[in-house]
Design a protein around this nucleic acid. Structure first.
Lengths: 350, 350
DNA sequence: CACTAGCACTCATTCGACCTGACTGCTAAA
DNA sequence: TTTAGCAGTCAGGTCGAATGAGTGCTAGTG
């Protein structure tokens, strides 16, 4: 991957960098004159042409046709990202926007993720995906039983990290709230702080009755489901920005883009791929394993507490995207969400 | 609106109907010969041409250019909807799909709405929006306080219709779970079944203490928020299908479509407009008040219990959409959701 | 040897001319 | 009222020329 540095003298590097940033800005092939006109390098266009020929040889740039300017190849974007992608910081105003949009007090991963996707998409003017963090091992904090009519109750589970889940339970017999309240109280004292496995074990070693059997079974199932949560809840936003990019002028492309973002199956494998916590990963165009993702680049970061509960934050756009900005934004937002998640990780003190 | 019947003899009606359905299928202007070739009417193309000239005169059809076939105008779609739009029924297999996709036991409006949008979009191959039902007056069923560290607790509110909301509370002093459990128990006995207004009133007429003040204030605020819920949670799906339609071959259009579906502000007014419960409403192209919606048609229905909790189900696509199918699907799904909602409307028996 | 000036060449793009074919509008006859 | 037939219209496709942006190459310079 990052083997021997390709033989690029510093001027060629500068040319490549200018070419990439210019192309990111204009979406048009960059001509040698344009580069020369910037004045950063005091050489003539002819010299730049020679260097560009070399860059083409090395696979950094390509040309739409023989007499056109240079267009960055994926390799050029990779170069750009390695060289200057990680340097930028999210602007102050973005930090304020985040603070205003995501509230700790909601204590709800889903609304955080939804808000995060929205803020991210608006900021980078591209697509954004945020998944609610998956938990690897959850513990019951408290359960609650609310009577709904004679034969139904709502089971509300509060798990570690303030995860709240609910489920409807049907009873074969008439059950009143007082019974349910008593049962909940009893179960809370014995089961609080336990994993689903521990709950089952504890339960097996006690005498049962039909009612609590039902509740325990349901609770355990909900908790297990929470741990697996295979069809992970993800929030997508910003498709409109992607479609506004000139590379999607054709309708066919637009449809494909919508498919990639709307059909969770396409992105799931990428999002689920393990990765360094705290690191921002960038996958550029052809580097994608999935054919369907090749026209896009992705900037993603894990957030949350590794090994306990982690979600993913992801920016997606055409390969011609503003990597510096995206990386800075994703990094800040992932950090922010990590802090929120950690705040909920607090254990019972006693 | 539906004033005097325009002077359409039955053959012209038949021609118009054929023209509309053909156009819906093919997205191509319909020629007089095509209509004649179907054999349903035993007249020559020339006769049909004469009738089509008349239909054009009356504003039912238009032509892309002088020597092109007929394209339905909005008026033609309106005619089509009035004449045969309401007759179809959702196919059996769709009903099964719905039953498989939406589970009563989840007891969660949000996941129902999400699933409903998904199923609807897949079935009609167009866009779909479902809003979680808004409640007009909610009552507390039960609240729960879960300690999170020394100075924080999670307030979990269960309201009527099994609505569950949570919020993080910060205490100025150290508070332990036992205190919280006792407090919740006390508040549940006095406040259960009450509206936020009633809770506030009851509370004002009792002696306070700092801890329960905090909790009550938070609870009341959450409930009021639930009733207002201005930024209503809506779930959107199926943009990919809309973009697959030939009318969105141009990239510009695609971007606009994404904007309409992603930016909730555009559709909100339409969705919030009051409407007959149980009725399916169809808004076609230029009938939209909002300029931005004019290229689209919308099929929408309210679901839920009128005056208590209602949400909206909505199909959206280009004016050239399959109205019969959409109407049947929306109607069935709205009915289904209404039944689910009603199931949760059950009051405490005692 | 590195760089530059200048020129010839390439090729996407635009435009207009032209042709074709689909479909209509009209007219006259049944 | 319906039909047959014919002339007319117009979108769309193809072709070729003109345009101009931008290159590759070569010869010349410091």
């Amino acid at each position: 991957m990052d083997a021997a540095k390709p033989p690029l003298n510093s001027r060629r590097q500068a040319i490549l960098e200018i070419l990439v940033t210019d192309y990111i800005r204009t979406a048009m092939p960059v001509a040698s004159q344009q580069i020369a006109a910037r004045g950063d390098l005091s050489v003539s266009p002819a010299t730049i042409r020679n260097d560009m020929a070399e860059l083409e040889e090395l696979g950094f740039i390509s040309r739409p046709h023989t007499s056109a300017g240079g267009v960055p190849a994926d390799l050029a974007y990779r170069f750009h990202v390695e060289r200057s992608g990680g340097t930028a910081r999210a602007p102050r105003e973005f930090e304020l926007l985040v603070r205003r949009s995501i509230n700790v007090e909601d204590a709800d991963f889903d609304s955080w993720a939804r808000a995060a996707a929205n803020v991210l998409a608006r900021t980078i003017q591209n697509g954004a995906i945020a998944t609610a963090p998956r938990v690897f091992q959850t513990r019951l904090k408290q359960l609650q039983l609310v009577s709904l009519g004679e034969f139904h109750a709502l089971l509300v589970l509060v798990m570690q990290e303030a995860r709240v889940r609910q489920h409807l339970i049907q009873f074969p017999t008439h059950v009143i709230q007082d019974q349910l309240t008593a049962l909940a109280l009893k179960l809370n004292t014995t089961m609080s702080g336990k994993t689903p496995q521990e709950i089952r074990a504890t339960w097996d070693s006690q005498e049962h009755d039909a009612l609590s059997d039902l509740v325990i079974a349901e609770a355990v199932q909900l908790m297990v489901q929470e741990e697996q949560d295979e069809p992970q809840r993800s929030y997508v936003d910003g498709l409109r920005h992607i479609l506004g990019q000139p590379e999607f002028a054709s309708g066919l492309r637009a449809r494909e883009a919508a498919e990639v973002l709307e059909d969770t199956r396409v992105l799931r494998p990428v999002l689920n791929e393990g990765q360094e916590p705290g690191q921002v990963r960038v996958i550029i165009g052809e580097e994608h394993a999935d054919q369907q993702l090749r026209p896009y680049s992705i900037v993603l970061a894990q957030y949350g507490v590794p090994g306990e509960a982690t979600g993913v934050l992801c920016a997606i756009g055409p390969t011609r995207m503003d990597y510096s900005r995206s990386i800075a934004t994703v990094r800040y937002l992932a950090d922010f969400l990590t802090r929120l998640t950690a705040a909920l990780e607090q254990k019972e003190p006693k």
